[in-house]
């Protein structure tokens, strides 16, 4: 990371700490904001958060690694999370999964070369009555068919 980037990151995190407070209980909210903006939480950001909350960097890393929606490695601009739990599975998840893989040319767990998409599975997203469902960034898409899924992805390209 360049010095200017580091400074910008420090400033950003200082603002978040200002907003949420410098207590440990603010940790998740701060990390979620960084994740939302950068799609991951860079190494330097983790150390800055640790410094400003007066905890150890490994504790920040440990917390991030625990939660499925927080990442320590860069992700695509759009993070696709397709529900893999049984209700969606029974409603045709596999066909949707295959069509997305084919469309993006990546497998689950991978990020497209242009960094536009990361494809992941999620556990039950609470759309069991209207599956298959997926969450892209913060939005939920449901009653998916292979065709509908591709349409949605095209809308994001």
């Amino acid at each position: 990371m360049l010095v200017t980037e580091k400074n910008a990151m420090t400033e950003e995190i200082e603002q978040l700490v200002e907003k949420y407070g410098s207590k440990r209980s603010s940790l998740l909210s701060i990390l979620q904001d960084i994740q939302r903006k950068h799609k991951y939480i860079p190494d330097f950001a983790q150390q800055e958060v640790a410094r400003l909350l007066d905890i150890h960097p490994v504790e920040v890393f440990s917390v991030i690694s625990f939660y499925a929606f927080l990442n320590t490695k860069p992700k695509g601009k759009n993070i696709i999370r397709l529900c893999q739990t049984i209700s969606c599975d029974m409603q045709g998840k596999s066909a949707v999964a295959k069509s997305i893989e084919r469309e993006l040319g990546i497998k689950f767990g991978e990020t497209s070369k242009d960094n536009k998409f990361t494809l992941e599975y999620a556990n039950c997203v609470g759309m069991c009555d209207q599956g298959p469902a997926m969450i892209i960034n913060e939005r939920v898409y449901y009653k998916l068919t292979p065709e509908k899924a591709i349409e949605i992805l095209n809308g994001l390209k």
């Binding site: 440990r24 940790l27 998740l28 499925a68």
Partner: peptide
């Protein structure tokens, strides 16, 4: 942030306090 176990009330409290 995507952790089923946080539905357990003490895990939820841990999460609110900024922990795993």
């Amino acid at each position: 942030s995507g952790a089923y176990v946080c539905g357990e009330e003490t895990a939820l409290i841990e999460s609110l306090e900024g922990n795993r």
